[in-house]
Amino acid sequence: MKRDLLYVIVFIASIWLISACSGGTTKNAPENESAHKLMSEKELSQMAEEIDNLFNAPESYNEGVKSYQEAGAYGFVNENGDVVIPAKYESVGCFNEGLASVTLNGKMGYINHSGELVIPAIYDFTNFFSQGVAYACKDGKFGYINKKGETVIDFIYDNATDFWELDGFAAVKLNGKEGLIDIRGNIVMPISFEHASSTMDGVATIFDGNKEISVYNDKSYKITTY
């Protein structure tokens, strides 16, 4: 999998998923253009196709398996081409940290490599696991779960991103503003900025007006004014 591309697509797509999780359409998406430029329906459709192609890319193996499609459903095969998990899901994500997201009856959950549904399909949206947690959307709100399916950060946010790195921070959105939290749910930078992004290469970045704030893993930061 082209992981760098995945980072970009998932983050941009998560903006779109706010409206999807709240039962709206792209026309009713939150209008917070100072933080994110809204995309047209055509652009959203193209983005959705790119995500589907990436998550269900037939040439991409992850943890020894890749997805395959049969009769409009998805499953997994191993590197020998043997079916290890039959095609019975509406969509599947890639395996990461031993689990893969799947869609059943319009809801998402997680299976293990044995094909067992270990986290029930009760979510509007789920992402793959990173650092032992995954963000998910339920009843229009985002939060984080662990690999037991337990809620570790409450479902209170309007949007969320991944914890890409150990001891790094994730960006969350609430009431049109963004900030940073740690993996325990503690607020590291107030949720009061125009835009924030998760820690990558040891640095999370916040943009606010003419300021760029670089936030390091030790919670120190540097402000650059343009």
Rank of each mutant, 00 (worst) to 15 (best):
K2V: 03
K2N: 15
L5F: 08
V8N: 09
V8M: 14
F11K: 10
F11E: 12
W16C: 13
S22A: 11
G24K: 12
K27L: 12
A29M: 14
N32T: 10
N32E: 15
N32V: 11
E33K: 12
E43C: 07
E43H: 04
L44E: 13
S45T: 12
S45C: 04
M47C: 08
A48C: 07
E50D: 11
D52R: 14
F55C: 02
N56I: 02
A57G: 00
E59P: 04
E59M: 07
E59Y: 12
S60A: 11
Y61A: 02
N62E: 07
V65K: 04
K66I: 07
Q69F: 07
A73N: 11
V84D: 01
A87I: 10
A87S: 10
S91W: 10
C94Q: 02
C94G: 01
F95I: 03
N96V: 02
S101M: 10
V102Q: 13
T103Q: 06
L104F: 02
K107M: 12
Y110I: 07
I111C: 03
H113V: 00
H113F: 07
P120E: 11
I122F: 07
D124Q: 08
S130D: 13
S130P: 04
Q131K: 14
G132A: 00
G132Q: 00
G132Y: 02
G132W: 01
V133W: 00
A134V: 08
K138F: 12
D139T: 09
D139I: 06
K141A: 09
I145V: 11
G149D: 03
T151Y: 06
T151V: 15
I153K: 12
Y157E: 02
N159G: 14
F163M: 13
L166S: 13
L166D: 15
F169V: 02
A170Q: 01
A171Y: 02
A171L: 03
A171I: 01
A171C: 12
A171R: 03
N175E: 07
G176K: 01
K177Y: 03
E178G: 04
I181K: 00
I181T: 00
F193L: 05
H195E: 05
S198K: 06
S198F: 03
T199H: 04
T205W: 08
D208N: 14
E212R: 11
E212N: 08
N217C: 10
I223K: 08
T224R: 13
T225D: 13
Y226S: 10
